[in-house]
Design a binder for these strands. Structure first.
Length: 274
DNA sequence: AAAAGCCCCTGGATGC
DNA sequence: TGCATCCAGGGGCTTT
């Protein structure tokens, strides 16, 4: 599901609403990818000051620590303003944070997502989950020369290096194919074979595609929506993702679909020659 | 150190 | 209608 744009759209949809609230109660459903890391009751009374994002993680700043939320493949959050009646936890609701401002709830059928509490920003669990992450593509630290240097160190295919997240974060399966299309780069090229000009074109394409996707509210393939229920629309303007056999929007050649590391990759063999 | 494969889990689409 | 198979926005862990 959620790549950087969806996570960012989710963040924007509730960050200001939950800020400066106090946790009233916490409910847990079935186990997620990792255990919460504290008793649910430990979060009660905590003040939520802000919501940040690092890669595909949402970071809720609490006065007593940090709550990391990852949406995995099928997760989505909802936020219901305080004062409503409040519904019971559904079969796929696995975490709920009821605060003075409203209720944040994680729905995640596949349960690849996670909610993890860390007592401090430098807690071991934070390091374990975040320390290996690469540059933030929409921030100033996404330097083109650092990007090029990162690619130089890797012999794997450029598509898989983008997905791996240790050079640049947030680019998942949809946006990797899309960015490579916009840069005119074949997904199978080894990362270290890209010249500086081509790496630089990809650098720009990654930024452009992700920023555009945020503007469009992300991509809703099946069930993504932000915390206020809004679905995304970027999938409607995808150039190659999910378009196997359909004509390339630029040259008309049928879009190809190949497998790379057990994931689908889409590209136009004519627009992305090498 | 880096790459490749496996696995976690549920549900929708497709084919017989 | 039922059942088997494949596929899906991620990513950590184990094995090469």
């Amino acid at each position: 599901m959620p790549e950087l744009p969806e996570v960012e759209v989710t963040r924007l949809s509730f960050a200001s609403r939950i800020s400066n609230s106090t946790v009233l109660s916490v409910q847990i459903g079935k186990p997620l990818r990792w255990p919460l890391g504290c008793l649910p009751a430990h979060l009660v009374g905590a003040n939520v000051s802000s919501v940040r994002r690092r890669g595909k993680y949402l970071l809720l700043d609490l006065d007593r620590g940090l709550l990391l939320v990852h949406l995995g493949m099928s997760g989505s959050l909802s936020f219901t303003q305080a004062g409503g009646s409040g519904s019971a936890m559904g079969a796929h609701d696995h975490f709920e944070l009821r605060t003075t401002a409203g209720t944040l709830r994680l729905n995640d059928p596949r349960r690849f997502g996670a909610v993890v509490f860390a007592p401090a920003d430098d807690a071991p669990i934070v390091g374990k989950l975040l320390s290996h992450l690469g540059m933030e593509p929409l921030s100033d630290d996404f330097d083109v020369h650092a990007f090029y240097a990162g690619l130089k160190r890797r012999k794997a295919s450029i598509k898989q290096v983008l997905l791996a997240g240790d050079v640049v974060v947030g680019v998942g399966n949809i946006y990797a194919s899309e960015a490579l299309f916009h840069a005119g780069i074949r997904p199978t090229v080894r990362a270290n074979r890209l010249s500086l000009p081509r790496a630089s074109k990809l650098h720009a394409a990654v930024k452009m595609v992700l920023a555009r996707a945020v503007e469009r509210g992300g991509s809703t393939l099946r069930d993504f929506s932000s915390t206020d229920g809004q679905t995304g629309h970027f999938q409607l303007e995808a150039m190659v993702y999910g378009r196997t056999g359909e004509p390339c929007r630029v040259c008309g050649t049928a879009v190809k679909n190949i497998r790379q590391g057990q994931r689908s990759t889409f590209f136009c063999a004519k627009c992305q020659k090498m």
